[in-house]
């Protein structure tokens, strides 16, 4: 399948990676020494870019070699190296061309901002993640599951409600947010509601699909055992629905955080990552903006991984 030769040449890989990384870091340090005047145009057109590109290519060769084989390093090193090298290259390039912080901050400036604004970002993250995204996610999930159970019991409701759910799940959140915020207010509640609504429909749709997915053979079997409806539900319908529900949850988890942030753009009471991003963009404090984006991304990935982990615990049979 893959085009690479299976012979691992790890030593060469490490050499190339190290050289590339050290080169880029060295370039950045060198550039930090000379205080270039703020200007948008390139100082020495092309020259720096050639050097950075050459070092990146060297790194790419290293990444390619390190990806050989099936060992632990071959699975983790390429991704880690890609990120580190790209960040270093961005640092060097931004410094070489003296790009002002007000346009694109260097990664080191973002790190500094991350540290300097840590208490505020922590509080913002708490607001956005816990009170808006997480709470909305839980409410949306519970409502979705509840409606799904009702729908499966009452076929009339399923046939009347589900088509709307499918339609409403393709409503863009940016069109929804201003109206909800105007109606509910600027506080946390409006964002929680928006997140809950965006989680509700996919969960509902997938849960109904899942509850119907129980194979008729199993259902017949339960019937022949004279199992009660509750037993059938617990032993057959519910387990077969869970994978579907988790698929929806995994998609919804990072989205709930993103949606909370987007909703904050339409009004807050002065807290939250979306608020921070919006207010700092206006001040050209793009280092803080990127710091907030980093925080949001880390939270989003963690949320996704936690949901995946729970899924694997609950559904041990599936891989």
């Amino acid at each position: 399948m893959s085009l690479e030769r299976p012979v691992p040449r790890l030593a060469g890989a490490w050499g190339a990676l190290g050289l590339s990384g050290l080169g880029l870091a060295g370039l950045s340090l060198l550039l930090a020494r000379q205080e270039a005047p703020a200007q948008l145009g390139p100082a020495q057109p092309g020259l720096w870019l050639v050097g950075i590109t050459a070092l990146l290519l060297l790194g790419a060769v290293g990444i390619r070699q390190s990806a050989q084989g099936e060992g632990h390093p071959a699975r983790t090193v390429p991704a880690a190296a890609t990120l580190i090298l790209l960040v270093l290259a961005a640092e060097a390039a931004l410094r070489a061309y003296a790009v002002p912080t007000g346009l694109i901050p260097t990664p080191s400036k973002v790190l500094e901002a991350l540290w300097a604004a840590r208490t505020v970002l922590w509080r913002d993250a708490l607001t956005t993640f816990v009170y808006e995204a997480l709470l909305g996610f839980v409410i949306g999930t519970l409502l979705g599951l509840g409606l799904a159970l009702l729908s499966v019991r009452l076929r009339f409701l399923e046939r009347g409600l589900l088509p709307y759910a499918a339609l409403l799940s393709s409503v863009p959140i940016v069109a929804l947010a201003p109206v909800v915020i105007k109606a509910v207010g600027l506080g946390v509640a409006s964002k929680t509601i928006i997140v809950a609504v965006t989680v509700l429909f996919p969960v509902l749709i997938n849960a109904v699909r899942g509850l119907h997915s129980a194979q008729s053979m199993h259902l017949d079997l339960m019937h022949s055992y004279a199992a009660s409806a509750a037993q059938t539900f617990r032993d057959v319908r519910w387990p077969s629905a869970l994978p579907f529900v988790f698929t929806a949850l995994r998609v919804a988890a990072p989205l709930s955080l993103i949606n909370a942030i987007v909703a904050e753009f339409f009004g807050t009471e002065g807290r939250g990552l979306g608020f921070r991003i919006q207010i700092e963009v206006g001040k050209f404090g793009l280092d803080v903006v990127w710091a907030a984006i980093v925080v949001a991304s880390v939270l989003g990935i963690s949320f996704y991984l936690v949901i995946s982990l729970i899924e694997r615990r609950i559904l041990p049979g599936r891989r």
Binding site: V120, L186, G267, G270, F275
Partner: peptide, 20 residues
Amino acid sequence: STVASPSVQAVTYPFDPSIV
């Protein structure tokens, strides 16, 4: 972004005074 306990609560909103 450096003040932890502000003395005035700032509320941002998208320009329309009727919202707040």
